[in-house]
Design a protein around this nucleic acid. Structure first.
Lengths: 214, 214
DNA sequence: CGCTTTCGCTACGAGTCGTAGCGTAATGCC
DNA sequence: GGCATTACGCTACGACTCGTAGCGAAAGCG
């Protein structure tokens, strides 16, 4: 896990150090501005005012709006944890509900999709999103899978490449379905929905473990 | 199916009619600008110049950037068709590949997610997206389902509410997975991926048709 | 104490926004 | 054909945001 400070900031450097409090205030102000204004009407000048710092300070730490919002939204995913619920089905539901809880927040809704849209034209931004958000989600899927294998609910696979492909598929299905349900269909991914989804996914995984060639 | 002209435009109205050619030129210019500049750097002035119309003309027809891009992207989905491939599995793969083909275009990538992000704070915009894009995708899912029932691959369900829930779930899973694969994971949803996904989904549907209470 | 870096502040040119005003072009109705 | 009505191209405008530069002061470290 890497520290998410904007630019690398070695401790042994001379001079006045950057204020960590300013970092926190700026990111909190960014989230507040996302809630009130949304992505398109969010301006860096406004964020600076809310955070009580000068606009120039903001530009010294972040390259632009995209990077700032990625970091601000990424902090929401720090709370992602996967309690062991005892069975694969319960763990999948847990992952889905965790995703849904974060995506229910307005600052996540408007911020996350906007930076993803921007990342289609900016490889560095996509990598930043992957490191600070996507991989953190994916970790839950990997953890749930490891537990299920330990319980004997899933077979220990030997083919590493095939395993990676399956993990990627599952992750895209889980995260994609929750995002689509929440943002596009505009309905909450509540417990009922998570239950139905888990049923389908679990049944799907049970059969598709072995042969893959068409 | 509704006509997608910006504002309602009755034929029996006096005065000079709006140029349909201008509409087409503006939407094409919008897509071209999306490809070259992306969402955030796209300006209405630039679009007007590309289309060969005055900026004021553009503002007379669309309320803003959001609405314009929705219409421009929606035209990409006009080509959505679902050829009967003879089996449910093949039809699902067909839907997935159709979605993937459209999302592979840069104008769809950057434009679609951006307006979805904006729609989280604008109910009218969400409705516009639903009418001109989402429902058009959903139609394919409904069509595939109807065919499968005609073939006897899926049971004829009687509970309308339960059926609607299932349809919604399937749609969120299919569309969400393709979108997430393409935009977030950043990999193409090619035939191999579609094959694996179809296998999982089909297996999942086979079991989850009956009981849903948990 | 000196060196270094950050910080707050002000100011700036450049660019975009969305609108208003005007004269002209294109249609329907009489 | 003449008239009313609407769309169009063009120009100009104030307001706003952008990202940067320059300055003096503050806060660390040796």
């Amino acid at each position: 896990m890497q520290s998410r400070t904007p630019f690398s900031c070695r401790s042994g450097r001379p001079g006045r150090p950057r204020s960590a409090a300013a970092d926190a205030a700026i990111l909190a102000a960014t989230r507040a501005a996302l809630v009130e204004l949304g992505w398109s009407k969010l301006t860096l000048g406004d964020v600076a005012t809310r955070a009580g710092v000068a606009k120039t300070t903001l530009y010294r730490r972040w390259a632009g709006k995209n990077e700032l919002v990625v970091d601000a939204v990424a902090e929401l995913f720090d709370e992602l944890e996967l309690p062991d619920r005892g069975s694969l089905a319960a763990d999948i539901e847990g992952v889905v509900l965790q995703f849904a809880a974060i995506l229910a927040r307005p600052e996540a809704k408007s911020g996350l999709m906007a930076v993803v849209a921007e990342s289609t034209r900016d490889d560095a931004l996509r990598e930043r999103i992957r490191d600070s958000i996507v991989d953190r989600q994916k970790r839950l899927v990997l953890e749930g899978r490891a537990r299920a294998q330990a319980r004997g609910e899933l077979p220990q696979e030997s083919d590493a490449a095939e395993t990676a492909r399956t993990i990627d598929l599952i992750f895209d299905v889980v995260a994609g379905a929750v995002v689509h349900r929440t943002l596009v269909s505009g309905r909450s991914a509540d417990e009922d929905w998570a239950s139905g989804f888990t049923q389908v996914l679990l049944q799907g995984l049970a059969g598709a473990a072995g042969p893959a060639g068409g």
